[in-house]
Structure formats: structure tokens, C-alpha cells
């Protein structure tokens, strides 16, 4: 999944990767592409995890994990960092999801459970500000329920914000008329994909989908 999404990140992009599976993308970007990673706590030019000698508790990413800074990196304060996000300067943001709807609504911060401690972080800023929002997620939840739905039942992170969805079963484009299937994973039939998806899907033969 991460590999498939990484293939769609063009050379020269400024990318913000959400915590979790999206973080894997940095390690599988095709060779020869120069991609600069933005970490919303205040770093543009985030590098890989540190060696034992490089470990520095004051050089962390948005998930508070220790990272490194590449040559050409810059540090800045939080309001500047979110100006980059909210001002539309980030090319692509890849986020995880609890639910995504066919019109691009995203729910990834709360299940609405009144007993849970609410926490939102920068997700609402990212979905409202980055030029392209990619969602990278398992197609179904651990309980086997589809995360791709006609409408999200969980509280929204943003309305109509998602452009592409990468799951273990398929790649989708969110378009004004609904969810277009761009690609199906090997061994997955259209029937199975539809069965595991909570909304109707649009297939476009022009895109050369092979089943």
C-alpha cells in the first residue's frame, strides 16, 4: 500500500506524512526522486530515524519520535509551520483513516465515544490546507467493517477533503460523481471489492482496469 502511494508522489514534492502506516512511504519512494518531508512540529527536511549517535530528544517528528534533519533542512516555530499547511504550501498530505466517504469526507480523529479522551492534533488543519489529501488505510476495520462508506458515521475531520484513497484492495479517486476505481490489487475481483465497500463504485474501462 505504502509502495503504491509512494509511486504517485512526484519528484520535487513537499509532503507531510501522518503518523502510522503513512510514515512508511518515506522509505519506499522510488529512487531518483527528491521529496522533502514536512513535520508539523517545525521541521522541513525530515530525515530517517537516527543512529544511536544521532539520537536527540529535541529533534523529533509530529509523533514525538526522534528523527534526523537532512542537508538543507530548516526549523521554524509552530505558527510558521501551520502557515505552510493552512496557506496551501504543502503539495501532498498522506493520512490514515477510520472512515472515508464517497464524497471525500474523512473521519480520523474520534469515534464519538463519550468516554474516550478527545484529541485532534493537526489533522483538521492538514485536510483543510494541503493541496492534495491522500488516504492510506486498510480497506476494512479490524472488525471487518468497510472503512469506505457512503457517509461517515464518526465525527468528521474534514468535509469533501480527500482526493485519493489507497487500500489493501484498491486505489480510488474521489471525483464529483463519486468514487472511481483506479486500480484493483492483484487477485481481487470487482465483486469482492464491491462487497467489502460501503458505497457504489464507478469503474472506468478507459483507465484499463484488469480483473
Amino acid at each position: 500500500m505504502a509502495q503504491r502511494a509512494a509511486n504517485d508522489i512526484p519528484d520535487g514534492s513537499i509532503v507531510n506524512l501522518g503518523i502510522g502506516i503513512p510514515e512508511l512511504i518515506a522509505s519506499v519512494i522510488p529512487e531518483g526522486r527528491e521529496v522533502l518531508y514536512h513535520s508539523e512540529n517545525g521541521l522541513l527536511g525530515m530525515g530517517p530515524a537516527p543512529t544511536p549517535e544521532q539520537r536527540d530528544h529535541d529533534l523529533v517528528n509530529a509523533g514525538k519520535k526522534m528523527v534526523t534533519a537532512v542537508e538543507g533542512a530548516s526549523f521554524f516555530h509552530h505558527a510558521d509551520s501551520f502557515s505552510m499547511i493552512r496557506g496551501g504550501h504543502i503539495d501532498i498530505c498522506v493520512l490514515g483513516a477510520m472512515q472515508v466517504s464517497e464524497c471525500g469526507d474523512l473521519a480520523n480523529w474520534s469515534t464519538g465515544d463519550p468516554d474516550a479522551l478527545p484529541a485532534v492534533g493537526g489533522a483538521m488543519d492538514l485536510v483543510g490546507g494541503a493541496k492534495q489529501i491522500y488516504v492510506l488505510t486498510q480497506h476494512c476495520s479490524k472488525k471487518g467493517k468497510s472503512k469506505i462508506l457512503q457517509r461517515c458515521s464518526y465525527p468528521l475531520t474534514g468535509k469533501g477533503v480527500v482526493n485519493r484513497i489507497y487500500t489493501d484492495l484498491a486505489v480510488f479517486n474521489v471525483e464529483p460523481d463519486g468514487l472511481h476505481v483506479e486500480e484493483i490489487a492483484p487477485g481481487v475481483s470487482m465483486g469482492l471489492l464491491q462487497e467489502r465497500t460501503g458505497c457504489s463504485l464507478i469503474y472506468n474501462e478507459r483507465r484499463g482496469i484488469t480483473i
Partner: peptide
């Protein structure tokens, strides 16, 4: 608790 999106928090400050 007053929960504020992170960028909104930074911008409010």
C-alpha cells in the same frame, strides 16, 4: 478541556 486544532491553536496564539 478546550480542544483546538493544532494549527488553529498556533494561529490563535
Amino acid at each position: 478541556l478546550e480542544l483546538v486544532p493544532q494549527g488553529t491553536l498556533a494561529e490563535r496564539i
